[in-house]
Simulated assay, not measured.
Amino acid sequence: MHSTILTMNLSLPGCASLKEKRQRMGGLHERFGRNPAVAVCESGERDRLEASEWTFVVTGISQQKVDSLCSEIEEKLQRTVDGRVLDVSRQTL
């Protein structure tokens, strides 16, 4: 079993309320948490309106599958979130 921790830091320019922040993040728990190989949580910047940090723990039978799923998460997040990805880090366990 292979595992990777994927952490993404996002900027949400012009975000004026926590309600707007939740709307702009667009239900990441529901979207990515459905996959049994992925655990997701907002891991930082919870109280800042114009920033958000999300961590995904991705597991799989091969490192290639885990890397592929991490890349898919990155691409979907960049396409669907009304914000800008500032930093992406991966830590292989």
Rank of each mutant, 00 (worst) to 15 (best):
K76D: 13
L49V: 04
R46F: 06
N9T: 06
Q91F: 09
E45Y: 09
T55I: 04
S71L: 13
L49D: 12
L6G: 02
L86R: 08
L18G: 07
T55R: 03
G27E: 08
I73Y: 00
F32T: 08
E50K: 12
A51E: 15
R90M: 07
A37R: 11
V38L: 08
H2W: 10
S71V: 01
A51Q: 14
Q91L: 09
E42R: 08
L12G: 07
I5H: 04
F32R: 05
V85Q: 05
G26I: 01
C41P: 00
D82I: 05
I5K: 12
V88Q: 06
K65S: 13
Q91P: 00
R48G: 02
N9W: 11
E74R: 00
S68D: 14
M25I: 08
I61H: 13
A16S: 14
L49A: 09
T7M: 12
A51M: 13
L69A: 08
E42A: 06
G33S: 09
T59N: 10
I73K: 00
S68M: 11
V40D: 03
V57H: 04
L10F: 09
S89I: 04
E30V: 05
T55S: 15
L28G: 02
C70S: 15
T55F: 02
G33Q: 05
E42T: 00
E74Y: 00
L49T: 04
E42I: 01
V58L: 13
L18C: 01
D67L: 07
A39M: 05
D82W: 05
I73H: 01
R90T: 04
N9S: 15
L77I: 01
P13D: 12
E75D: 14
H2E: 12
V66W: 06
D82E: 15
Q91I: 05
K76N: 08
V57S: 09
R46W: 10
D47P: 02
E72W: 01
C70N: 13
